[in-house]
């Protein structure tokens, strides 16, 4: 049976450009909520925002790892067709990791962390989040891109994330980068971002 593959972007050249600018803005100004201009048509279970970000960032040069919930047959077909990216069984060599279910988020050191000589060879984690839900406790953030101090709702992050993030920060310049992907927004969390108590000891 021939299954149809969702269309992705309608005008890939321009939609990936405008999506990229949103991602760039998000990574340049960590913690700020940046609207995505386009919501791509992707596999079932993915938000339009996630589809747009994946279509913009992934191609045949980027090995991708997906969590159990993101990695459906639909999703694999979609990725093979639109991105031609190598699909990995383990996250440790991934350029990008797609995590739809925060409960399935591996420990940060399970990803590629880069080396001191080539710290850019680390995984960028695309983590699905309900950005509209900013209720509850917030935490203070600072670092490059943050004007003074900012705040981030804890509800966006997986449970017990703070400590792992602090460990990740201690590895600098190595470490993973995170992009929180909502239905129609992105928030960047580069490895330089310090949360809460501040820098590592």
């Amino acid at each position: 049976m021939l299954q149809s593959i969702p269309a992705g972007f309608a005008r890939p050249v321009f939609e990936s450009q405008s999506t990229y600018r949103a991602i760039l803005e998000a990574m340049s100004r960590p913690g700020s909520i940046v609207p995505l201009p386009v919501q791509g048509e992707g596999p079932r279970g993915w938000s339009g925002g996630m589809t747009s970000v994946v279509l913009t960032m992934c191609d045949m040069d980027t090995p991708v790892w997906l969590d159990g919930q993101a990695g459906t047959d639909d999703a694999f077909r979609f990725l093979r067709f639109h991105c031609a990216c190598p699909l990995l069984d383990a996250p440790d060599k991934a350029s990008f990791a797609i995590v739809i279910n925060q409960a399935l988020m591996p420990s940060l050191d399970a990803f590629s962390l880069g080396s001191a000589e080539y710290p850019e060879r680390s995984t960028t984690v695309l983590l699905a989040t309900d950005i509209d839900d900013d209720s509850g406790e917030t935490i203070s953030i600072q670092g490059p891109g943050v004007d003074g101090k900012g705040r981030l709702p804890l509800s966006w992050l997986p449970p017990k994330f703070m400590e792992k993030w602090r460990d990740n920060g201690c590895l600098f310049p190595r470490g993973v980068d995170l992009i929180l992907v909502g239905k129609a927004h992105v928030v960047g969390l580069p490895r330089t971002l310090r949360m809460g108590a501040g820098p590592c000891m």
């Binding site: 990936s16 760039l24 850019e120 891109g145 980068d177 330089t192």
Partner: peptide
């Protein structure tokens, strides 16, 4: 071409995440 743009876009994001570090 779009693939080249993608490669450069990814390099820029890593550059932003590691300020001052030269990404090949």
């Amino acid at each position: 071409d779009e693939q080249t743009k993608g490669m450069i876009r990814r390099a820029i994001l890593k550059a932003v995440a590691i300020p001052g570090y030269q990404v090949p």
